[in-house]
Design a protein around this nucleic acid. Structure first.
Lengths: 145, 145
DNA sequence: ATACCTGCAAATGTTTTGCGACTAA
DNA sequence: TTAGTCGCAAAACATTTGCAGGTAT
């Protein structure tokens, strides 16, 4: 199985795009976090090692990384885009804690199947979907008692 | 069953808030559309009859209307808030056509039930959830062939 | 009379873009 | 050498807020 970096390198080459240090570094930082970082969170991390890299470059690079199939935009309704891994990570849904912001990734094959059925029933051709359950996670629930 | 306008009037009264002409008119326009209008779409409609009403007032009024339980914010990931009816409209999910923007409201009790189960399995206390399937609607599918 | 509300303009926060300088191939 | 990129600042957008003037009760 090809590594994410290899995939990225090939994507850039195929498109005649350059393999810059900034892109490499931003991809590196993104790959190291298994969370759902915002652009600004990534920017703060990158900044520590490479204070010269600008915010606009992070925006531009994350778009390229998404286009290459390595990341996917997600949003949890708080007005900021977040990114999660796409390569070698199967589709999943999210449980989002409204107290602490923790995100639990979940998968229910039965729900996935019912979604297909639901779309078909309306003659709707699904391309992608998202499902988020907002609430209180176990830890926050315990604390509030 | 109380009308939406009655509910709104009582909500305002209970809070010591004023029943202004602007709020009444904005509620009226919103109640007349069964779509998922953005603030700007509502503003354009309102503007035809009441050119004096400002955009900020539409934003402020829609928040009040949501707080009163008559509308709910939804977003389809295109960076703009939309509003749908909440009063006397049960919870539902959405099929969003990426070609024409049409939104089909759907409900699957089986999916709803599985979502409950899924949350419970993770000791997660659900408050609300959302599910959207993005794809191509029947009409757009037909056209593209 | 007096809270509360509105319209306007300015501020905010996130994301995008124009442009001259820089860099990978 | 020369496209393609970068950093910076400015622009673009959606949304919110401060404030002076207006309005419902």
């Amino acid at each position: 199985m090809k590594s994410a970096k290899t995939v990225f390198g090939q994507y850039l080459k195929n498109r005649g795009m350059l393999h810059s240090k900034q892109r490499e570094e931003i991809l590196d930082i993104f790959l190291k976090t298994e969370k759902h970082p915002t652009i600004d969170a990534l920017y703060q991390l990158i900044r520590k090692k490479h204070p010269k890299i600008g915010l606009a470059t992070v925006y531009r690079s994350m778009r390229v990384i998404c286009d290459a199939g390595l990341a996917r935009e997600v949003d949890f309704g708080d007005g900021v885009k977040r990114y999660e891994h796409e390569y070698q990570h199967q589709h999943h849904d999210h449980l989002v804690c409204l107290k602490c912001g923790r995100v639990i990734e979940v998968l229910s094959p039965r729900i996935e199947h019912l979604q297909e059925t639901l779309a078909k029933k309306h003659n709707f051709t699904p391309i992608r979907h998202r499902m988020e359950i907002f609430g209180t996670c176990r830890e926050c629930k315990r604390k509030e008692k």
